[in-house]
Every structure is written in C-alpha cells, then in structure tokens.
Nucleic acid binder design. Structure first.
Length: 136
DNA sequence: CGTTTGACTACGC
DNA sequence: CGCGTAGCCAAAC
C-alpha cells in the first residue's frame, strides 16, 4: 500500500476516490485511508498512524488541472487542515461554502449533515476498496 | 546527503 | 473544548 513503488497508484487511487465525493459533502483524510487495503505485512498500528498522512501527501500533489474536488477533504475534527486565515484555507472554505457547507463559530462543519457516506458498493468493488469508516 | 516539513490522528489532561 | 504529544516517513530543501 505505501511502498514507494506503489506510491503512484496510491496517489491516483486517492484522487479517484476524492472525485466521487459529491458537492456539499465532505470526507476526511482518515476516512479515505480507511478504504485502502493495507499490505499483508503492514503492522496495524503503523498503518493507522501512516495512512492519513499519506492521503494528505497525495492531496498535496493533486494535479490542479484535473478538476479534482480536493477541497472536500478535511480533517477528522471537521475542520480545514490549513492554518486559519491562510490563502489555502480561505480558498477551501469559500469553495465549500459555495456548495452549501456551513461552518460553525469554531470553524467546524457538522458531520451529521455534510459527512459523505462513501462510494456506492459497485464503485468499491470495481476498485477493490473497503467500505469507509463512518465519520463522527 | 543530513535535516526539516508536513493538507493526520488518537489520546491524555 | 483546547492544547500538547507521540508515532511516522517520503518529500522537499
């Protein structure tokens, strides 16, 4: 899953999954990671700590020209992961708000309303992905 | 080629 | 809820 030789396909899988998130909904780095199968010899603890960061790494390298909805991925706390007030954070927030996503006074979204439930089963099967862990 | 960085998370206080 | 910390390791510098 995370070996260098597989990095390319890992990134592409992440981008592919992100493209499945509909407007007005959000996912998290950890949720996307939860859909990827760990390698057989991967230590569960190591996996848990590593996977979300790799999703972040993949997103950081998102091709800007392919209209991938990168802004629909936030962190497990329901907040944008860029420093508040930064150019990136402002852009991400504006994109989400333009889709109807609401942020409360602590800059958090309400997962009960905007959490993405994951791709449909057919998509998961076609990509060999696991059902995503629900967001809380 | 050594050091720092980073689009994370779970957990403890 | 907010803040700090450990765990992680390929990129970026």
């Amino acid at each position: 899953m995370f070996n260098p030789p597989n990095a390319r396909s890992f990134f592409e899988t992440v981008w592919d999954i992100v493209c499945q998130i509909p407007p007005g909904k959000v996912s998290t780095y950890g949720q996307i990671a939860s859909m990827m199968s760990p390698e057989d010899d991967m230590d569960p603890v190591r996996m848990k700590n590593l996977a979300p960061r790799w999703v972040g790494t993949a997103l950081r390298k998102t091709p800007r020209g392919k209209s991938i909805p990168w802004h629909r991925v936030i962190n497990s706390q329901g907040k944008i992961s860029f420093p508040i007030g930064s150019a990136h954070a402002n852009e991400q927030r504006q994109l989400l708000e333009s889709e109807g996503v609401v942020f409360d006074q602590r800059d958090k979204v309400d997962f009960a309303i905007v959490a993405w439930q994951g791709p449909d089963d057919a998509y998961l099967a076609s990509k060999g992905l696991l059902p995503p862990r629900p967001l809380k």
